[in-house]
């Protein structure tokens, strides 16, 4: 393992006990992200993309049973006490959640909230934390930061709030930023600004980023590597260019085909028939088999395909990888 790897996850499994039985939200996932790189986790709701990240950082719900090897900066998180794990996570990992409307505390000023982590982890005094908060607000491009530091969340627009949340996540200069669909709740122009902001901050601070998204358009312009998840497993992963240019898994191909093309004159959007499987009753074989357009033989139904390489660093979990014919370009 190189010293550059910030977070690595090996054979991560998350099982959630429910009244209707055990739900396998994540079923043996491996991924890692290096300093200065962006890993995109892509998938539909319930594919396990968020859960795998939450579980890796020790934020899974209490009902979840998590197994696997997780290393943050080379440290085995499972071996740490709860308090030390909390400190390590707070110091080295920053989080940006989906909805900036609810991820800020309505009764505290944004300055106090941004400064809080620096009080906890860097031992700053309240005054120093406030100065740091102003610095952070400037860094994320909020005008007249010295005034805005005393604003309450409801006095800021959605885009401003998400900038404040990003400031909050980066206040301790973390090695890793986890962005869980941070642009989903924003309008399109604001989305682009936030994506640009994160990319810019990443260049400047050298932070590793895990970007969780269902929006392939956002991912294409942002990520270095991409992992496509389906039914709790990674079905395809590799360099973002390779995966987008030559998707080897029928699911990835279908996802890419489902992207609306503004130039094409179509009356109906392309969709993938069917719905994702319930984590309570994952099929024995390939989870995508019931919705697959290739749908080979009964082998797909009975047997789980292994993750096999199609080219250097590009892996796919299917018995019938699409041939790189270039027809998708």
């Amino acid at each position: 393992m190189t010293d550059e790897t910030v977070l690595s996850v090996a054979d991560l499994t998350v099982t959630i006990g429910t009244r209707r039985g055990a739900a396998r939200a994540v079923a043996g996932v491996d991924w890692s992200v290096r300093a200065g790189q962006t890993l995109a986790l892509v998938g539909e709701s319930g594919s396990g993309k968020s859960m795998s990240v939450l579980a890796a950082t020790g934020l899974a719900p209490r009902a979840a049973r998590v197994t696997g090897d997780v290393r943050l900066l080379g440290t085995d998180l499972a071996a740490l006490s709860a308090a030390r794990r909390r400190r390590m996570r707070g110091r080295h990992v920053g989080f940006v959640f989906q909805d900036p409307m609810t991820s800020l505390n309505p009764v505290l000023t944004v300055g106090r909230q941004i400064g809080e982590a620096s009080e906890v982890h860097l031992g700053l005094t309240r005054r120093a934390a406030r100065a740091r908060a102003i610095e952070m607000l400037e860094l994320v491009g909020i005008p007249s930061a010295a005034d805005r530091v005393d604003a309450y969340p409801h006095q800021l627009s959605g885009g401003m709030r998400q900038r404040a949340v990003i400031a909050m996540a980066l206040v301790c200069e973390p090695d890793l930023l986890i962005a869980d669909e941070p642009t989903t709740a924003l309008d399109v122009t604001t989305q682009a600004q936030i994506v640009e902001l994160v990319a810019d901050l990443q260049r400047r601070l050298g932070t590793a980023v895990v970007w969780i998204s269902h929006d392939l358009g956002v991912v294409a312009g942002l990520a270095d590597t991409v992992a496509v998840m389906y039914g709790g497993r990674i079905v395809e992963q590799g360099a973002v260019d390779a995966v987008f240019a030559e998707p080897a898994h029928p699911y990835t191909a279908a996802l890419l085909a489902a992207r609306p093309d503004p130039d094409a004159n179509v009356t109906e959007l392309v969709t993938i028939p069917g719905t994702p499987p319930s984590p309570l009753e994952l099929p024995e074989g390939c989870a995508f088999w019931p919705r697959c357009s290739v749908r080979g033989d009964s082998r797909c139904e009975r047997e789980l395909p292994p993750l096999v390489p199609v080219s250097a660093g590009h892996q796919v979990r299917t018995f019938y990888p699409r041939q790189p014919t270039g027809e998708d370009r």
């Binding site: 950082t57 934020l59 909390r86 400190r87 390590m88 996570r89 707070g90 110091r91 990992v93 920053g94 989080f95 959640f97 989906q98 909805d99 609810t102 991820s103 800020l104 505390n105 309505p106 505290l108 909230q113 809080e116 982590a117 906890v120 982890h121 949340v165 909050m168």
Partner: peptide, 22 residues
Amino acid sequence: EQVFVRAAVATGASDLRIMRRH
């Protein structure tokens, strides 16, 4: 269950601090 409490947990604030401040 609010996201800002989850966010505070994620930043590594102690339980007592979260209860008091958030």
